[in-house]
Amino acid sequence: MDARDWDKKIEQALNQGTRVDPETRENVWNNIESRLYTGGGKESTSHMKRKRNFIRLAASVAAIVILVAGLNTQPGLALVNRIRELFDPEKNITQDIEGTPEERNVKLNEGKDAEYVIYVDEERYGFVRGEDADRIVPNPPLEERYPEVSMEIRQVNDKKPEALIEEIQAKLQQEFSDVTAPEKVDQPVSGWTFRGLEGGKWDSRLVRVYVIDNRKEGSFVITQRYFLEAEEGHGARFDHMLGEFYIVEEQAE
């Protein structure tokens, strides 16, 4: 078989294998129309799971790795610029807060060394870059009488989630009386989660931890801290922002 015949076969194989279903075509348009022209938060063509009494109405999915190809020799600033090309600087998401759908404008923030990006609701929260971890905190800060409310994003370079979970759980058990077993989840991020709770009062401290694979033999550990009464408020908002967390990966040749 000569090269031209081979090219023809590849083309025909692809044409045959990728036939378009008219119903899909129509459904995709309906979803686009709904999101752009009616202001609805219609879900994507895939089935979306409901988690912990809130509905993700945005069509995007959990912590997704974006390939930023061919940047191995480019300096950090070029990577940041490329990220800004690929991601909208801001977007509107619809989230379910305490049973009510709420549209929020969220803004793009780059994490440490531009290894991840996350969209933050900057009307309510600030993104603070730290030496070892970044934090999302209420802005303006809460009154003194409230327990800590924050979401910390930390990268652990040398331990995969499966190796880290027990360690983190043991630490939580020193701090909290009620710690759940690790649970595998795919929303708002794909990985493991568990929760620690101090007690049953409105201001009992609560921590929720997500551990996800950073795709470089390590992990991202996301620690949300709030209090029991704030679970459906700050807790839900943190989860919605986490749903807009993306790992940035450079693709090797």
Binding site: T24, T45, A59, D88, K91
Partner: peptide, 17 residues
Amino acid sequence: RQLAGDAVQETFIRVYR
């Protein structure tokens, strides 16, 4: 095919915006 539908949906929205 489902992922493809999602990808195309997001693409047109991103194009528009």
